[in-house]
């Protein structure tokens, strides 16, 4: 097996070749990117000054701006995230059921469901927001729908996986007892996937809180609207308030989710 005991090398020549090609490919892509990407050095030399300027304009933070203009949109952001997540669940549950191969025995339907899930995930939430702003007009409704459509892929995929992992025992017992389809689901599947379900929903809500904070930049409501307004007026002290409130809310959301998950799982 070993040609010479004195010479030990970590990988076989073939493994090394494959690895080397990947390394080479990565480095080549990196070098190509670095050489091509347009970076204006003058801007870069200026950066320390700009950062100093940014900090000096952010300080002192305009705290009094929060109650007048930030609080309401912050609450709106949370509503967008929450309502968006609820709508997602309503939409994703049927798709998840269609995607789970142990429940839906039709390959065509499985693939159709998977296609819906993949398309939902491939389009960024901001693009969804742009689309819905064009459809529903600017405002929180577009944001809510963007969050909802963006999350279907995530929730539906994880839900389908949870369903596929469910033990067949209790379900077969229910079917053997002649239970109708709906009670097989509520008494057989639901108790088994319930922890996973809440965990997925909470996890997605956490992500959605972060995402809904930027939707306003494209006119889809929430705190991003205030951010966009303050930035276009170069009111950096107000931007600072907005950023601090986003950070606080995101941190609180994470704590809430972690605590709730501990209780559920």
């Amino acid at each position: 097996m070993i040609a010479s005991q004195e010479q030990w090398v970590r990988f076989t020549p073939r493994q090394r070749l494959v690895r080397f090609s990947w390394y080479f490919g990565i480095v080549a892509a990196l070098v190509f990117s670095a050489r091509n990407v347009e970076i204006i050095p003058e801007f870069l030399y200026d950066a320390p000054e700009q950062v100093a300027d940014l900090v000096s304009r952010m300080w002192p933070v305009a705290w009094d701006y929060y109650p007048t203009s930030v609080h309401a949109v912050m609450i709106e952001t949370l509503h967008i995230a929450t309502l968006g997540t609820i709508i997602t669940i309503l939409l994703a549950v049927p798709v998840g059921f269609l995607a789970a191969r142990n429940i839906t025995r039709s390959t065509t339907l499985n693939y159709l469901a998977k296609l819906i899930l993949v398309s939902s995930r491939s389009v960024n939430s901001m693009v969804w927001a742009l689309l819905f702003v064009a459809v529903f007009g600017p405002g929180a409704m577009a944001g809510t729908m963007a969050i909802a459509f963006r999350s279907i892929g995530f929730v539906g995929k994880l839900l389908a996986e949870a369903l596929e992992e469910a033990h067949p025992g209790p379900i077969e017992a229910l079917q053997a007892a002649g239970a109708p389809w709906i009670s097989t689901v509520t008494k057989g599947y639901w108790p088994q996937i319930q922890p996973a379900f809440w965990s997925i929903a909470l996890f997605r809500w956490d992500i959605n809180v972060r995402e809904s904070a930027v939707l306003g930049l494209v006119g889809a409501g929430g705190i991003g609207t205030a951010l966009d307004a303050s930035m276009s007026l170069f009111d950096w002290d107000r931007v600072a308030v907005i950023l601090i409130s986003i950070f606080t809310v995101v941190m609180l959301a994470e704590v809430v989710v972690t605590q709730l998950r501990k209780r559920i799982i």
Binding site: I39, F43, Q50, L54, R210, E211, V214, I246
Partner: peptide
């Protein structure tokens, strides 16, 4: 935690201010 809590687009806004418009801010 700070890196994670802001959406990349928000971080990009700050970098656009710091290093100007263009790919560098995105990077």
């Amino acid at each position: 935690a700070v890196c994670r809590s802001f959406h990349p687009v928000i971080v990009a806004i700050l970098f656009v201010k710091a290093v100007g418009f263009g790919a560098l801010a995105g990077i």
